[in-house]
């Protein structure tokens, strides 16, 4: 999960406008049900939570389970009424979190 996620947030928006945010992160999302070459189960290793905060307040979050395919992709809509920063966080089963942020200017 070392690679940096791809995020698409419009640079600017009008007040009260509904904007679309897209995110994509690289992760193999190991289900815990596959067997390795030695016949033993490969331990589960997935991103179990994704969250998006705007100005410190959570605007979108999702819990993920083993049925989610590799490289999870999210697209969602947010209504913005002031300029600020979107903070994104992906947390995996080991508790490791990858974060990223994007600014938006609202006029």
């Amino acid at each position: 999960m070392a690679k940096k996620p791809r995020i698409k947030v419009p640079k600017s928006a009008k007040k009260g406008e509904q904007i679309q945010i897209k995110t994509l992160i690289s992760h193999k999302m190991e289900t815990g049900r596959r067997k390795g070459k030695d016949g033993k189960l490969i331990p589960r290793m997935i991103i179990n939570n994704f969250s998006c905060k705007f100005g410190g307040k959570e605007v979108f979050s999702a819990d993920m389970y083993p049925a989610i395919a590799a490289n999870p992709y999210f697209a969602f809509y947010v209504t913005v009424d002031k300029s600020g920063t979107f903070e994104f966080a992906w947390t995996d089963d080991k508790g490791k979190t990858v974060t990223a942020s994007k600014d938006i200017a609202v006029t």
């Binding site: 690679k3 940096k4 791809r6 698409k8 897209k22 994509l24 490289n71 992709y73 697209a75």
Partner: peptide, 12 residues
């Protein structure tokens, strides 16, 4: 091009 996960590799 954004949704296409192959672009994670193109970025590399």
């Amino acid at each position: 091009d954004f949704e296409n996960p192959a672009f994670l590799w193109v970025d590399i």
